[in-house]
Deep mutational scan, measured.
Amino acid sequence: MATGGRRGAAAAPLLVAVAALLLGAAGHLYPGEVCPGMDIRNNLTRLHELENCSVIEGHLQILLMFKTRPEDFRDLSFPKLIMITDYLLLFRVYGLESLKDLFPNLTVIRGSRLFFNYALVIFEMVHLKELGLYNLMNITRGSVRIEKNNELCYLATIDWSRILDSVEDNYIVLNKDDNEECGDICPGTAKGKTNCPATVINGQFVERCWTHSHCQKVCPTICKSHGCTAEGLCCHSECLGNCSQPDDPTKCVACRNFYLDGRCVETCPPPYYHFQDWRCVNFSFCQDLHHKCKNSRRQGCHQYVIHNNKCIPECPSGYTMNSSNLLCTPCLGPCPKVCHLLEGEKTIDSVTSAQELRGCTVINGSLIINIRGGNNLAAELEANLGLIEEISGYLKIRRSYALVSLSFFRKLRLIRGETLEIGNYSFYALDNQNLRQLWDWSKHNLTITQGKLFFHYNPKLCLSEIHKMEEVSGTKGRQERNDIALKTNGDQASCENELLKFSYIRTSFDKI
């Protein structure tokens, strides 16, 4: 039985969820670079991206490699990797027998973001014989899940209580170790020597080791999670996991709180800001991140802002960003909400898709409305799209047979046209069989910064309504002859009103 693990408890099935942008060198404390989270699957090609990484700022997932063999891993080693800020997950990587050479110096898994409450997941690794993470000293947050690894031993010899604050939620089941077939031998045991430290858990006094050649490092209890030197002297209180010299914040392997210019500090002093819960960055760093993602459509890219001495992905609820200094300031009234469309555009074809934009005031991208039916549609669209004030790209209304009016965009005031449909149009209306009105132009103002209007096959939309939009939106004169079809717009509506004058002759039985 794995020490510190839980057996036999019912657990939810383990679901495996399925960018080499360097964020800056980590400095003297770390020998390499800070790398983003990685999802490495199918083959070993991307694994080489770990070569210079000291910190993975995010998670590391290595999974679904069915053609790899043990010899493929023999020359692979990433000794610079010290810390993973989120979680480490391995799933069905064939041929991998140990992690001792792959990650010989991995010391800390912070667990800032977890995989279903777990910071370390080893699942269905069919050839893994031992973990071998002999320098792993601290899992700051989260638990361990090690399950269905039929060859995995050296679990009962690990004292997880020396690595985690609590072992109650560890789930370590259905491994070879369960069948008591392992016969784990710690260093020196074969020669009758006791080389590794022994600890007591559940009444068992057991030597602690990761492999037959690597003991588990056990520091004096007084050192807590700070770690200790090879001689057993406690590291500085700002260290986490390990250090090369005692009581020196510049000799830590990793930091308990924050890293700044080669030393570990309790908090980031001005003019620095907390970033990702582990390091200090200056304003320029946060500003660069903001600008890199301002026009990016890459998933996970955030326009970072500053709030409460932190550089964070977005302002919290009730705050909006001051564009001059990136500071989050309290909103006066309802907060603006910028919604970034991942692929640059979004099609609204149902109430469900409209709900995804609920509360958005600025759309960074283009909207395509293609709704053919739905219950209580006008009210639903207004509830979900009615706060949109600005669209950076274009607005396209296409084959939306259920629409009679666009009044559900009740606050839309600006279409920038930074991206144009077919390279020309910022407003595009095609084949809307029941569209009769755009907006009530006596109450609604709309500016279209650039781009043209396109109207074709809107049989109940009168040309007068379209011409009014040209005047109000500032697009009059931009359109070419064929942009607004004269014969297919309003051709099934009563669009022309003329005053009919009647004269009559009164007659009676005795007068003409």
Rank of each mutant, 00 (worst) to 15 (best):
C186W: 04
A119T: 07
F73V: 12
I139N: 00
L102M: 14
P31R: 02
P36D: 01
F103P: 00
T189K: 14
T140A: 10
N170G: 06
L240K: 04
L136H: 01
F275N: 02
V55F: 03
K251V: 05
T229L: 12
H236V: 02
P249I: 06
L164R: 04
C219H: 04
I201F: 15
K67I: 06
E147S: 06
G262Q: 08
V281L: 04
D86H: 15
D75V: 13
P316G: 01
I56G: 01
S143L: 10
N309V: 06
A190D: 09
V167D: 04
C234L: 01
C219S: 05
T229R: 09
C280K: 01
Q245R: 05
K67W: 13
C209Y: 02
F258C: 05
S317P: 06
D178H: 12
C315L: 01
G111A: 02
Y304M: 07
K191P: 10
N308W: 08
Y171W: 11
T211Y: 03
F205K: 14
P220L: 10
G300C: 06
T267P: 01
G262I: 05
D248V: 03
C235F: 00
D86R: 03
Y171H: 15
P269G: 03
L131I: 14
L289F: 09
Y272W: 10
P70M: 10
L260C: 01
L96A: 10
M137H: 10
S225M: 05
S284E: 03
L327I: 12
T267F: 02
H226G: 13
K294A: 15
V173H: 12
C53K: 00
D288N: 14
R41G: 14
G188P: 10
C264A: 00
G227E: 02
P334G: 15
N242Q: 14
D277M: 09
T194F: 14
Q287I: 07
R208S: 12
H59D: 05
L174T: 10
K251R: 12
Y259S: 03
K176S: 11
I56K: 00
C209S: 01
L289W: 06
G32S: 03
H127T: 03
P79W: 04
G262R: 06
S143K: 08
T267R: 03
E151Y: 12
D86K: 15
C264V: 00
K251C: 05
L289V: 13
A156W: 07
D261T: 05
C223K: 01
T85W: 01
Q303C: 15
C335T: 04
K176L: 06
P336G: 04
L133E: 00
L120N: 00
E180R: 12
A119Q: 01
R256N: 06
V305Y: 06
G142T: 00
G262P: 07
R263W: 03
S98T: 07
K129S: 08
V167L: 13
L89S: 02
Y87C: 00
N42Q: 10
G188V: 11
T329G: 12
P79K: 02
I62W: 02
R263I: 02
C264H: 00
R145T: 03
H214V: 11
I40P: 00
C228F: 02
F205N: 12
G203P: 05
F275R: 02
G318H: 05
P313S: 09
I306L: 07
V265G: 01
I82P: 00
C335H: 08
L240Q: 06
I185D: 07
T68Y: 15
N308G: 07
I146G: 00
N138I: 04
F103Y: 02
S161Y: 13
G188C: 13
I139E: 00
S98H: 03
K193A: 04
L240H: 14
L50W: 06
L233F: 05
V121E: 00
Q299H: 15
G227Q: 14
D178C: 08
T140N: 05
T85L: 08
R141N: 08
L50K: 00
V253L: 15
R46Q: 06
P313R: 13
I172G: 11
F103K: 01
P269N: 01
H127Y: 02
P220Q: 13
L326E: 05
I306C: 10
T199F: 12
S244L: 08
F115P: 02
P197K: 05
N242R: 12
R92H: 14
C255V: 00
N170H: 08
T229F: 15
A198Y: 08
C293S: 03
T107P: 00
R145C: 06
E207N: 05
V34P: 13
M125S: 15
F73T: 15
N42G: 08
E181P: 03
G333A: 12
P36A: 13
C182K: 09
T250H: 08
H48C: 05
F66S: 08
K191G: 12
N43G: 08
R92T: 02
T107W: 03
I222N: 07
S324E: 14
K129E: 09
D165C: 04
N42K: 04
K100F: 11
P270K: 04
H290R: 09
S54V: 13
L332A: 15
C311S: 01
F285E: 08
N242M: 09
C153N: 01
F123Y: 15
W160H: 01
Y171G: 15
K224R: 06
N150G: 12
I82W: 12
I163Q: 02
T267Y: 03
P334Q: 12
C228Q: 02
I62R: 00
